[in-house]
Design a protein around this nucleic acid. Structure first.
Lengths: 367, 367
DNA sequence: GCAGGTTCGGAAAGCGCTTTCCAGCGTCCG
DNA sequence: CGGACGCTGGAAAGCGCTTTCCGAACCTGC
């Protein structure tokens, strides 16, 4: 009554019993309980061990992650940055990454950046604040250094702070990466098209600001150069969506009705392109051939089935997560389709993921 | 030399400066630094504040999430359980949930459960261990109580421990949920088909063990009953994938060539069904009509465009995340399309998300 | 000019856990 | 038979932060 210190009602502890409570109930020390329940190099007598475990179960003890993180100075969280999980390209990467994370007992924090540099920076900081063990950045960085540099620096900061970083797409020196062979695939697409006799070819690009697009475009043009019948490439740009592909294709068709083939740099856009072609009354591939990029699962079921460049998205996600988790000096056996190498730039690790042209029904000889 | 205690080289602190170091460098107390940098009810003199902030920036101070979590007894993490992020249905939910999470400054830990009950249990425990503030479970629970009960109990445990739980799909009393009007949509599909004169109708179901499928199937049959021309429903089961839909459809076609319409209970499967129909030489909709469920973005671009039941997946994800974050006694204004209500079962909150038949080119009158 | 109020910075007590160091004890070997 | 050693349990010192409680300084009004 006299005491002012009226303790507030001890709100039922969030999340059950404490290790201390378990230890007390089991009649052992905190140290012993910790060793039994949360793993340790030190071993504990089998019987005692069993007893502690029983008490813990009875008390519904659940370890306190943040406290462990604090004491151990490490967490089991990793971050994954994607442009948009709802885009099949990224959801496949995420699925691959999460599969590996699962094996390694890691929890994955996923964040949509919507390709907004400010959001990206913010998320990296926040993941750093959570002491995520690693950050995996999926999705093409911007071509513009003014946009790319801040991101890169923030990643480097994080990395210097002891975190691991792996990107899918090249973020420059010192940052490990897995890189899809965009140029190779695009080149193969060009060769395929010129081989079929096409000379007037439309390129439907995604946002030019992204290196992925720049690489695919450059690779395709390189393939064009390799042909001897002097093909023309006419490029238009569109948003990285179905509607972006639709709009860009309509524009291209209006301005250059002479094109007999289309190279669309992402399958999401190719879906729109196919619709645009249909709406414009152009038959595929009789009037015009169509090649996509990425090989989304839906491609094989479109009508006609889409010729496209396969990218092993899920595999890249897995590979990236594997690297993120591995000791920095990894020496894993490279995949058959992949090749691993020290980058000339710096001591970083770069894994190349092969791409492959998949010919289906949407391409045919020029008539 | 004599001392055995050779301190190991004090590895450069993971993640930069400590609040204490910032405080020291700024010549203020730990308490003040905390108040300035990490928000508090208490206010600090503007100049001092500015000074502390400067020092923090100079030292590249980044708050330590786990330590804050420990001290504050709460985190800014929420968990999201999905069957598979790589399935467009779930990636849309995830996108919706993540958008809201972003607004609320929450980090989302996403986990693929692959519909494996053991994995689900494990993830819930681990999210609990991380002291996730809430867990959002997307995806139909199993019909079998032997499978559903353990999950439900674990969720309840977590909830009693102070965490919030919201499910998309009904996990029973005491657990808040947002429920797509599966039965309504299926009923509308049935009415549509019988209205077109179809009497021999195939139902291509997903795994029967899931209540989502059970609901859709029951709803469809209810719609059939409402028709006066005595329609027949022949049901086959398939996996929740494109190939599952393909295989089930082929089987159905082989055994019941008389069907003139197909109701496929998920668009992923409908894509396979469409392929199976094509491969079997059946024209859609001339020979056979096709209705799907979910209205994935690709539906409108299939040939023919798929008639389907729209489910507001992204909206459900948003809604669920909003509930998860809201005070348990939420009283938000219900969406136009949604209706919120106290469940008769218990004091829980249930939000219904409307579904809507979208008629496109894949259905037509029976000939 | 002074009592009573208000601000605002600092000291210190944890939050739940890991891990080092120490102590007790049984064992082995010379 | 005694000392060295290995093994195992416990005490205690943090990990980085929040927050309560204090007290000093300053302000107000009479």
């Amino acid at each position: 009554m006299s005491t002012q210190r009226s303790t507030p009602p001890p709100a039922p502890r969030r999340g059950g019993a404490t290790l201390q409570q378990v230890a007390d109930a089991a009649g052992v020390s905190l140290a012993t309980a910790s060793r039994v329940l949360n793993g340790s190099a030190r071993t504990v007598n089998a019987e005692l061990s069993e007893h502690v475990r029983e008490v813990a179960t009875r008390l519904r003890y659940v370890s306190h992650g943040p406290a462990q993180a604090l004491a151990r100075a490490t967490t089991s969280l990793v971050g994954l940055l994607v442009h948009d999980v709802n885009d099949p390209y990224f959801s496949a990467i995420a699925a691959g990454a999460m599969r590996v994370a699962r094996e390694r007992d890691l929890l994955v924090m996923v964040a949509n950046t919507y390709r907004d540099p400010a959001l990206e920076l913010d998320y990296i900081t926040r993941l750093g604040a959570q002491r995520a063990r690693a950050i995996l950045v999926a999705g093409s960085p911007p071509v513009d250094p003014a946009l790319a540099e801040p991101l890169r620096e923030r990643l480097l900061d994080y990395q210097h702070g002891g975190g691991r970083v792996v990107t899918i797409g090249d973020q420059g020196p010192e940052i490990d990466a897995v890189l899809p062979a965009n140029a190779d695939g695009a080149r193969a697409a060009a060769l395929h098209l010129t081989g079929l006799g096409h000379r007037e070819i439309g390129l439907v690009a995604g946002p030019r600001g992204l290196v992925t697009i720049a690489d695919r475009s450059a690779g395709f043009r390189a393939g064009l150069m390799a042909s001897d019948n002097d093909p023309h490439g006419i490029e238009v740009e569109g948003d990285f969506t179905r509607d972006g592909g639709y709009a860009a294709t309509r524009r291209l068709l209006a301005e250059h009705p002479e094109v007999t083939a289309l190279f669309v740099m992402a399958d999401v856009m190719a879906v729109g392109a196919l619709a645009a072609l249909r709406d414009a009354g152009r038959r595929v591939p009789a009037d015009i051939s169509l090649v996509g990029f990425d090989d989304l699962p839906i491609c094989a079921d479109l009508v006609p089935a889409l010729t496209t460049v396969r990218v092993d998205t899920e595999g890249m996600g897995e590979q990236a997560m594997r690297m993120v988790v591995a000791e920095p000096d990894l020496s894993g056996e490279p995949d058959v389709a992949d090749s691993e190498a020290e980058d000339p730039h710096a001591g970083r690790t770069v894994v190349h993921s092969a791409t492959e042209l998949v010919v289906r029904g949407s391409t045919g000889p020029v008539t």
